[in-house]
């Protein structure tokens, strides 16, 4: 299997690479459109700010490449948010793969801190994720979220229930960081790679 990781200014490419190495999976990191299009599976990582990242992708025409992919794609964290239509983070037009808007968490009590940072629980909904992940703890760091919607594959509660994972056709996405979520995170990556 040819697995491509999209190379751009995402902050977690190194961590995702190390996680895949620990699983013994071969991959290559590339921003070459042809290499991305011909891969069997593609990972779209992401840590950073929405508007600068979208600009970076547009400048290199990677936005069009990602949108047109037909093979299984996995967006991680900001990668998932950028797959939506719009993000409240600096009012950014995104890729539009999921017809959803990304919203900023609005605390309703003093102990609700933003960013949502730490380990929280998965609730699976008719999911591409391995059933053993029901109730598992995985690691989140984010201030913006995608509301629960018809494409939600798993939800998590923080201030409101939100999408922890989504799927539409060949596009898979997770809000949390499987590469930092201990053994449970490895099962998430395996669910996508199997």
């Amino acid at each position: 299997m040819k697995l491509a990781i999209i190379k751009y200014n995402a902050g977690n490419i190194q961590s995702v690479s190390f996680a895949l190495e620990r699983l013994g999976v071969d991959f290559h990191i590339t921003d070459n459109a042809e290499e991305i299009k011909t891969a069997d599976k593609v990972i779209f990582p992401g840590v950073g700010e929405a508007s600068t990242t979208m600009k970076y992708l547009r400048d290199r025409k990677l936005d069009l490449v990602i949108r047109d992919l037909k093979q299984p794609v996995l967006g991680i964290c900001l990668g998932m948010q950028l797959m939506c239509t719009f993000s409240e983070e600096n009012a950014t037009e995104c890729l539009g793969i999921f017809d959803e808007s990304v919203k900023l968490f609005k605390p309703t009590a003093q102990d609700q801190k933003v960013p949502h940072m730490g380990w929280n629980q998965l609730r699976l909904k008719d999911s591409w994720l391995d059933p053993s992940l029901e109730g598992e703890f995985i690691y989140f760091v984010h201030s913006y979220y995608v509301p629960v919607n018809p494409n939600t594959a798993a939800s998590t509660d923080y201030i409101v229930p939100f999408s922890a994972a989504m799927k539409r056709d060949n596009f898979h996405a997770v809000q949390f960081h499987p590469e930092k979520s201990a053994e449970a995170g490895e099962r998430v990556l395996k669910s996508f790679l199997k």
């Binding site: 190390f18 979520s181 201990a182």
Partner: peptide
Amino acid sequence: IAKHINIP
């Protein structure tokens, strides 16, 4: 450390 440890 990053290579071998799977938590933040």
